[in-house]
């Protein structure tokens, strides 16, 4: 049964990717991207990767198509027909590469085997001892926020840097920090969409907070909560326009929060340095090691959540401001 679901989902993924090649026009492509994101999220659930599925559902099916749509609104939705001679060579290249890679897979351990090398190294230690050492049931959170907190700090910094890069690239000369004023020409909205979304938004934000603070016990954590929270705010922005959402959360506040999240994460690590311990050693936070882990993980997950949500909202603001400027 599990295999059947697996095969069905993967076949639908391939079908979506093939239609992406066949389809002309960018808006249709973006809708297919969204479907692709939703399908891969479902696939991750069947692979027991519930935390990943959460993230992919919010990013792949929600935020990513939205950013693509906003870009298409800026650059136009028409896609040119490729010239004939441009098809043969790429086709040859991907066929050869694909065949070589498939030959390569034959050396891989069979799917699902419990004695695969990937499952032999540190994974058993995480599974067997994290319950005792960290004291929280979700092993993914233990690895992310404690055993591998260095890597996660690096990734949060990459996200933060990407947010800054988007602001810099899309910066409008002379209009930095000012909120575009297009309140006078609000488009008429669909009543059903408006009312339903208005009811949904508080629950989305509440759910994001639940995912944030329940991440130690169930699937969830800062990354997932950050994207879900940002989706709620972005939905509000889409419905009521950029000026309204900028009144709720002004852009300078979001930008400051993005930096504050990274600071909260890094300072939790520096706290250990001050006591003469290694960077990000949580044992400085409390005398009981398990309580210390709990406090440390909660603090850095909060930092991650705040940064991820702020960066994604900032990216949305940057694109939306650009768009309303272009429409003027």
């Amino acid at each position: 049964m599990e295999l059947l679901v697996d095969i069905a989902l993967l076949s639908m993924l391939v079908a979506t990717a093939v239609s992406l090649i066949l389809v002309r026009g960018l808006v249709a492509s973006i809708m297919l991207t969204s479907i692709y994101g939703l399908l891969s999220a479902s696939f991750f659930v069947t692979m027991d990767a519930v935390d990943v599925a959460f993230t992919e559902a919010a990013v792949g099916a929600g935020v990513s198509p939205l950013l693509l749509l906003m870009t298409v609104a800026l650059v136009g939705r028409v896609e040119q027909q490729p010239r004939k001679r441009h098809i043969a060579f790429p086709l040859l290249l991907v066929t050869v590469t694909g065949v070589l890679l498939i030959v390569g897979t034959l050396d891989m351990p069979p799917f699902g085997s419990a004695d695969a090398p990937a499952l032999q190294h540190v994974a058993p230690r995480y599974l067997q001892q994290s319950g005792e050492e960290i004291g929280i049931p979700n092993v993914v959170t233990s690895v992310l926020a404690s055993y591998r907190a260095y890597d996660t700090l690096g990734e949060v910094l990459v996200i933060f840097t990407a947010g800054i890069a988007v602001i810099l690239v899309l910066m409008l000369p002379g209009r930095r920090g000012s909120v575009p004023d297009d309140a006078g020409r609000q488009r008429p909205r669909n009543v059903v969409v408006n009312v339903v979304s208005k009811i949904l938004i508080p629950f989305m934000l509440l759910f994001a907070l639940y995912v944030q603070f329940h991440g130690e016990y169930g699937p969830g954590g800062g990354f997932q909560a950050g994207v879900i929270f940002a989706s709620g705010i972005i939905l509000y922005g889409l419905l009521y326009g950029l000026p309204s959402v900028c009144r709720v959360i002004p852009p300078p506040v979001v930008e400051a929060l993005a930096a504050l999240g990274v600071l909260l994460y890094a300072l939790t690590g520096v706290l250990a340095l001050l006591d003469g311990r290694p960077f990000l050693d949580y044992s400085v936070l409390a005398t009981d090691p398990v309580t210390a882990q709990y406090l440390g993980i909660t603090a850095i997950e909060l930092g991650v959540g705040v940064t991820v949500a702020s960066v994604i909202i900032t990216i949305f603001y940057a694109f939306a401001a650009h768009l309303s400027e272009a429409q003027r």
Binding site: V52, T55, V63, A118, V140, V143, V166, F223, I315
Partner: peptide, 22 residues
């Protein structure tokens, strides 16, 4: 199931959307 790939990919997805935005 092995939690390690989950950690790697969960962060990679969010890093991926941030870099796609750039």
């Amino acid at each position: 199931s092995n939690p390690l790939p989950h950690v790697l990919i969960l962060t990679a997805i969010v890093v991926g959307i941030a870099t796609t935005a750039v």
